[in-house]
Design a protein around this nucleic acid. Sequence first.
DNA 1: ATTCCGTCGGACATAGTGTCCGACAACATG
DNA 2: CATGTTGTCGGACACTATGTCCGACGGAAT
Lengths: 208, 208
Amino acid sequence: MASITRRPAADPSRRAAVEADVLAATERLLAGGARFTELGVQRIAAEAGVARSTFYLYFRDKTELLLRLAATLGDLAYGMVGTWSPAAPDALDRLAATLLEVVRFYRDRRHVLAAVLEVAGYDRVINEFWEAQLGLFVARAEELLLAEQQAGRAPADLHAATASRVMIWGGMRVIADQVANRPAEEDAAAARELAANEWWGAFRRPES
Amino acid sequence: MASITRRPAADPSRRAAVEADVLAATERLLAGGARFTELGVQRIAAEAGVARSTFYLYFRDKTELLLRLAATLGDLAYGMVGTWSPAAPDALDRLAATLLEVVRFYRDRRHVLAAVLEVAGYDRVINEFWEAQLGLFVARAEELLLAEQQAGRAPADLHAATASRVMIWGGMRVIADQVANRPAEEDAAAARELAANEWWGAFRRPES
DNA sequence: ATTCCGTCGGACATAGTGTCCGACAACATG
DNA sequence: CATGTTGTCGGACACTATGTCCGACGGAAT
């Protein structure tokens, strides 16, 4: 009973340190070529220098581990594209530059991105997480497209909701493939093609 | 010893029938909302009215089962797009019509498509299978784009290889999402957006 | 020295995979 | 009818992984 006042509740920075060790160990293993699915808790715990049972003191299960790894995947990239506007005179060049930033961002985190996409295929929690992330991008794209249509710069018969999904879902798939399987030197070319595709395919699609 | 000549090697149509039962049972379970990953061999065998051990007399493992289910996924759709040519006067309308065909084709087989994409995330064999399928489409798109550039109808500074990947990888992701999560009534609108995106984003991208 | 905390290490129940084998019924042959 | 062959069944087995649980232990505060 007296212990409640006596103990100042264990050092929280220590707990955070162990957690960080586990996250870092997982990233290391992913970077080493392992797939998240075939990565056992045993292996992760060993790499982090911790008992397997201790893993479960920090994470409910592997899903929660992945969620924490992925926490910053969407937000930061969203901030990057948030600054782009299709109204600027050099909007296409700026779009290409922005997308290159995004590609490089995901290249840094390509192992985590690959793990999320891998697990999203069969795990509902991860799938919902990723859909929610992409949903933000889709909503933003739709907002911009509608504004362009209002201003008469994008064709009125363009279906903004669908076009947004095409841009974001399709674009993200290409980026994922780019950072997972293509050399970094091609990133700029990929970003430029992606930008041109979105620009002339939607924002400045000619009237037909 | 004599048996080798005496027995004319069991009725092959019977064997094919059991195999078909297992494939049909799997499709039924997938259509019922189960994910391929969480579908045990036990469950599949039971649904097909066959012992679990018998399953292994017909399929080496679950991967082979999925490969057989997926066998016709790419080929047929490839035949559809093979007839389209960007040189025709009404090429954009025809592209939309072709893509609508493709979307409907995959809608029919959406559970198998979803299973392939789900497993491709973590299984190398399925992943290679799917990459090979898409590779055909990418090659075809690149061929068409190069021809358009030669003819001066597509901009010379377009990077055909990258643009093809954007079209196919991005486009397939959109189609997969469309047939898995969107109502069939929207299929035509999606096909039209996809067509316009590819047409103005690549084949008839304005010079910038 | 005592008390408490977090970690360890390992046992446990559960569940799935792929292999193996003996039992058995169906059926064509002699 | 008796026999041998076939394909399927049903279940045991070894293996791997997950997530839970608990007693043991060592370090740190009192």
